[in-house]
Amino acid sequence: MPEDPTEPTENISGGGSGGGVAATFDPAAAGTRAEAIIDSLGERYWQKAYGGQDAFECLVRTILSQNTSDTVSQPAHDALMEKYGNQEEDLPTTLMAVPQDELAETIASAGLYNQKSRMIIDAAKEIIDSFGSEAAFDTYVREDDSSVVRDRLLEIHGVGPKTADCVLLFAGGRGGVFPVDTHVHRIARRMGIAEPAADHEQVREAIEAAVPPEKCGFGHTAMIQFGREYCSARKPACLDGPEACPLYALCDRVGIDEVTETVADPSGSVQK
Results as ranks from 00 to 15, higher is better:
residue 164 A to L: 14
residue 235 K to T: 13
residue 22 A to I: 12
residue 225 Q to G: 13
residue 184 V to P: 07
residue 50 Y to R: 04
residue 181 D to Y: 06
residue 135 A to S: 11
residue 183 H to F: 06
residue 23 A to V: 11
residue 41 L to E: 13
residue 209 A to P: 11
residue 78 D to N: 10
residue 126 E to F: 08
residue 120 I to T: 03
residue 260 T to A: 13
residue 209 A to G: 10
residue 129 D to F: 03
residue 78 D to Y: 10
residue 125 K to W: 02
residue 111 G to F: 07
residue 143 E to V: 05
residue 50 Y to F: 15
residue 146 S to R: 14
residue 261 E to D: 15
residue 167 V to P: 02
residue 31 G to P: 02
residue 152 R to A: 14
residue 212 P to Q: 00
residue 56 F to L: 07
residue 236 P to S: 03
residue 111 G to P: 15
residue 140 Y to C: 01
residue 5 P to D: 00
residue 40 S to E: 15
residue 217 G to V: 00
residue 248 Y to P: 06
residue 197 A to E: 15
residue 217 G to T: 00
residue 159 V to F: 08
residue 269 S to M: 10
residue 178 F to Q: 02
residue 238 C to T: 07
residue 17 S to G: 06
residue 163 T to V: 15
residue 129 D to W: 04
residue 217 G to L: 00
residue 209 A to D: 15
residue 179 P to R: 03
residue 196 P to S: 10
residue 170 F to D: 12
residue 59 L to H: 02
residue 98 V to L: 07
residue 66 Q to F: 04
residue 108 A to G: 15
residue 98 V to Q: 00
residue 238 C to N: 00
residue 232 S to A: 07
residue 135 A to C: 01
residue 45 Y to Q: 10
residue 258 E to N: 05
residue 139 T to D: 12
residue 133 S to M: 02
residue 255 G to I: 10
residue 135 A to M: 11
residue 85 G to T: 03
residue 155 E to F: 04
residue 264 A to Q: 13
residue 255 G to D: 01
residue 114 N to Y: 08
residue 12 I to P: 12
residue 106 T to W: 05
residue 270 V to D: 13
residue 56 F to Q: 04
residue 245 C to T: 11
residue 187 I to N: 01
residue 83 K to G: 08
residue 209 A to L: 12
residue 91 L to Y: 00
residue 26 D to G: 08
residue 207 I to E: 04
residue 19 G to R: 05
residue 130 S to L: 05
residue 56 F to K: 08
residue 267 S to R: 09
residue 128 I to E: 04
residue 267 S to F: 10
residue 2 P to K: 11
residue 230 Y to P: 04
residue 75 P to T: 02
residue 42 G to W: 02
residue 190 R to Q: 13
residue 119 M to F: 15
residue 134 E to C: 06
residue 194 A to P: 02
residue 244 A to L: 02
residue 30 A to I: 08
residue 19 G to H: 07
residue 265 D to E: 14
residue 78 D to S: 14
residue 95 L to F: 08
residue 42 G to A: 10
residue 258 E to C: 11
